[in-house]
Design a binder for these strands. Sequence first.
DNA 1: TTATGTGAAAACATTCACAGCT
DNA 2: AGCTGTGAATGTTTTCACATAA
Lengths: 247, 247
Amino acid sequence: MTSRQNRQRDRAERGIPEATVARLPVYLRALTTLQDGGVATVSSEELATAAGVNSAKLRKDLSHLGSYGTRGVGYEVEYLVYQISRELGLTQDWVVAIIGVGNLGRALAGYGGFASRGFRVAGLLDADESIVGEEISGMTVEHIDRLEDMIADHGVSIAVIATPAGAAQVVCDRVVAAGVTSVLNFAPVVLSVPEGVDVRKVDLSIELQILAFHEQRKAGGPGDYDPVADDGAPPGATQYVEAVVEA
Amino acid sequence: MTSRQNRQRDRAERGIPEATVARLPVYLRALTTLQDGGVATVSSEELATAAGVNSAKLRKDLSHLGSYGTRGVGYEVEYLVYQISRELGLTQDWVVAIIGVGNLGRALAGYGGFASRGFRVAGLLDADESIVGEEISGMTVEHIDRLEDMIADHGVSIAVIATPAGAAQVVCDRVVAAGVTSVLNFAPVVLSVPEGVDVRKVDLSIELQILAFHEQRKAGGPGDYDPVADDGAPPGATQYVEAVVEA
DNA sequence: TTATGTGAAAACATTCACAGCT
DNA sequence: AGCTGTGAATGTTTTCACATAA
């Protein structure tokens, strides 16, 4: 089965697993790298290795998009790049606003990954008057008062929040009220948003804590070199810091 | 059952689910916020709301650490903060090295979240001679040649890689060879590491692409305004951008 | 009475292993 | 002969619903 014509509807029938969606960008990056290297065709085994997954998972993931490979051969790189881009919505441009121009906001403004894959930064906004007007990566920082205007004028559909923790929810409420339904949050707070709004979170501190957990487990195993041999300190002995983390 | 004495071994018997580990830092943050607000006791319902999960999940997660609540009452905030901190390995200090002092590296160096929760930055390293010696957030940037020395001298156990994509694997190989077994990678590449080394990845571009996917689905529903209405373009018709994303 | 802790059920995700197509 | 695509099996995570304890 699976005639050429109804590939698109066969699978992808409203509903690619979330775990798969999260891996598609990784596949896409591996594919574009191969493409830059002049590779025209790739097997699931090769692509899986490049993407850091196993081949069964890769094939299952791709099968949710449709039947884009050739048995006995593999996948045509260019075709697959196009199909994944399309599935992810990267064949159209998305307009992004960056709110909060501290260290992180500046880093984001200069990040090459925005421009290069269909994400256009409409502008940078900050509440701090002393920063407003400053030129960063070819953009002039605007006052946060301009937020709603900018969203409307430029058709912003993704808001990147890089403010301090205390300002994040207020900013989030404003962008949502202005019609934005996708938010990428770098502030270390749990944002609450109405139904239908997507929030994704990038949190350095959380990643470090997860690493620490595993690191501790390794060190705790029997027989380890343990340079600064610290025992299981008694409760209360360690002055564990309570300060709330801020962006 | 579950006498006071063997709480620790009862559950947590080698093996907290990974999904739970990933949420513990979120609970911890919610708890410290409550603590700062003077709250002494919290119910699973309240804490779950603050952490952005449902209460059943929260209770199941906490049950993997032990039985730290009181039926009919809730959890003692301070006690739970300590237990989670301990489980995550935050009652000891972890030494971090940041490699790559571009925009992102600078942002990371100035990030409050490091110092405030048991993560100490041993130093900043970069290959660019013109940056070496520069003072950033109270630290002097050192040359990448010093990498192995720094890891040995300061007992670095977590490496934060914030280099361009092209340098990331080489840097990773070096830190692993020097004995580091936990890596936080900001470069947009899949790092390959030997068994026993943990890598976590933070990738802005991937997060944006996941948001774009969902945004597209929303817009794609029947009856929508669809600003740049793009049909199912034939393969090859669209000049989709191929540029590799870089940090 | 109230809210935790947890078996059991359901949903979701990964891996296996091979039929089927090129 | 080789590699995809996929049912079936296995493993993990979430949710349900209630016995249990304060």
